[in-house]
Structure formats: structure tokens, C-alpha cells
């Protein structure tokens, strides 16, 4: 009797719990969908072939956003090129080589703190260090480095998780064959961890492409009709372009459709890059099964 009512209570608790979980999932999905739909409906009319392939004209109240698309692509690729190798090497050091203890714990806390620093602080650091001190000027190089540092914690974190998820038995099997530690890591551990590391890179891409504050002092130009010729050139960038049109443009109200159109392009770009990475990742997963 007693047991039965406890069972029923447990069952009820479980139902309530799952209900709450489902509800929160629903709310989150709705919010996401709502934002996407809102931007889509306000922006899709602006999207034309000319919008995607021309430079802005008439003091940025007409024309396209091609330089900003190109600029954001350069900055994002640059940020990944900086952060991915550095992040993977750091994660390998932390999980495979460093003796687990106080020192590693302190480094991990540091990395986590870095992840929590507001992005404008990275922007100021980039301005002070890359733009001024290293004399890179406001440029693709300075912006990519700044964004690279910004997404470094994400990539280190994801890489560490991915490395830790590689079964210890793989390492043992390789080492027991008289294969050196470095060869074991590069031939067995890293290839197995790559799909997980890519997940981190995906998250990083989204963040790098969407941030405004880190690039406004380090890379982003208010307006350039010309495309960059070297990594020492300034570029326009999508998030900064939205910011400019919405706050400092010559005619803020009139350019609303352009603002939403640009936001839509930015979102599509990020989702597109994510999609590519997800496809690569899942095909790698299929090949490497354990």
C-alpha cells in the first residue's frame, strides 16, 4: 500500500518535471523562432541581388552591403585561423601533458574568466595592443587577432572536452605498441577528437561573426567602397554596419529595411557556416566510430 502510493507520487513528480522541461524547451524555441521571424519579415524585402553584390551608395542610404559581407568573412576566417591552432595546442597541453593539479586548475579558471570578459574589453585590449602598440593599425589583422582571443576560451573548452572524451583505451593501445606519446596524440587522439573540436569552432564562428564591440576599434570601417587589398586594410563588417546604420546613419528611420536586411544576411551567413561545419562533423563521426 505504502509502496504503491510512493510509486504514484514518484510517477507524478516525474511527469511534472518532464512537463517543466518541455515547457522551457518550448519557450526557448519560441523566442528563437520569434526573433528569426521578426528579422526575416522586416528584412527580406531588402534582399536583392544588387543588395548582396554592390557597395553602399548615397551616404549608405541605398545600394548594397557587399564590402561588409566580404569584411565579415575575412575577419571570421582570420579569427578561426588564429584561435583554432592556438586553442587546440592549449587544450592538448592541458589535457594530455600538464600534470593535473593546482597549476592546471589556475589556468582553467583563467580561461573561464576570459570567456566571461565583456567583449568591449577585448576591443579595448585589441586597440591598445594590436592597433597601437604593434602598429597594425585598424586592420583585418588586428581585428582577427582580437576576435581570435575572444573566441579562444570557447575553442579551448570544446577541444578539452573532445580530447577527454577520447577513450583512454585508445591511448593505452597505442602507447603499449611502443608508439611515442606525441605520435599517439597526433595519430589517434586528435583525429578522434576532431568532430568535437569542430563543434567548438562552430560556436566560435558564430560569436566572431556577430560581435561588434571587439572590431569597432580594431578593424571596422564606417564606409569603404573598395574591397581590402591586404590584411593591413580596414574593412566594413556586417554587425558594425548594422550598428552604424541604426545609430549614426544619415537617415536612421529610412534605412530600417537595410538594417534588417543586413541582419538577415549576417544570420544567414553564420547559419550557413555552421551548417557546413555540422555536415563535415557528422561525416567525420560516421567514419570514426567506437
Amino acid at each position: 500500500m505504502m509502496a504503491q502510493s510512493t510509486m504514484r507520487w514518484r510517477y507524478l513528480k516525474q511527469k511534472i518535471f518532464f512537463g517543466v522541461v518541455r515547457l522551457s524547451a518550448l519557450i526557448i524555441s519560441l523566442a528563437l523562432f520569434g526573433i528569426l521571424a521578426y528579422i526575416f519579415f522586416h528584412g527580406f524585402r531588402a534582399i536583392t541581388w544588387d543588395f548582396l553584390t554592390l557597395s553602399p551608395t548615397d551616404s549608405m542610404t541605398a545600394g548594397g552591403i557587399m564590402p561588409a559581407i566580404v569584411g565579415t568573412l575575412y575577419l571570421t576566417v582570420g579569427a578561426i585561423a588564429v584561435a583554432l591552432p592556438l586553442g587546440i595546442v592549449s587544450a592538448i597541453y592541458l589535457t594530455e601533458y600538464a600534470k593535473q593539479g593546482r597549476w592546471v586548475r589556475i589556468i582553467r579558471i583563467g580561461v573561464n574568466c576570459l570567456a566571461g570578459v565583456p567583449s568591449v574589453v577585448f576591443g579595448l585590449f585589441g586597440l591598445g595592443f594590436f592597433v597601437v602598440f604593434l602598429k597594425f593599425g585598424s586592420s583585418i589583422l588586428a581585428g582577427s587577432l582580437t576576435l581570435g582571443i575572444l573566441i579562444l576560451p570557447t575553442i579551448i573548452g570544446a577541444s578539452e572536452e573532445a580530447l577527454k572524451a577520447v577513450p583512454q583505451t585508445f591511448r593505452e593501445a597505442s602507447l603499449a605498441l611502443g608508439v611515442s606519446k606525441w605520435q599517439t596524440i597526433s595519430r589517434i587522439v586528435l583525429p578522434s577528437a576532431l568532430p568535437g573540436i569542430l563543434t567548438g569552432a562552430i560556436l566560435g564562428v558564430g560569436r566572431a561573426a556577430g560581435e561588434t564591440a571587439p572590431i569597432m576599434f580594431t578593424a571596422a570601417a564606417f564606409f569603404t567602397a573598395a574591397l581590402p587589398k591586404s590584411i593591413f586594410d580596414e574593412v566594413m563588417a556586417l554587425p558594425y554596419h548594422i550598428y552604424v546604420l541604426a545609430t549614426a546613419g544619415t537617415n536612421i528611420e529610412m534605412t530600417r529595411p537595410l538594417q534588417y536586411g543586413t541582419a538577415l544576411v549576417l544570420i544567414a551567413l553564420v547559419l550557413g557556416i555552421d551548417l557546413i561545419a555540422i555536415v563535415i562533423r557528422s561525416s567525420m563521426r560516421r567514419r570514426k566510430r567506437w
Partner: peptide, 13 residues
């Protein structure tokens, strides 16, 4: 020079 076989088969993927 001294090889090892483990309890659970552990081939590489």
C-alpha cells in the same frame, strides 16, 4: 619489445 593485449579488445577506429 614487450607487447601487450588488453582485457577488452581495443582496436583503433
Amino acid at each position: 619489445r614487450i607487447g601487450m593485449v588488453f582485457q577488452k579488445p581495443n582496436p583503433f577506429p
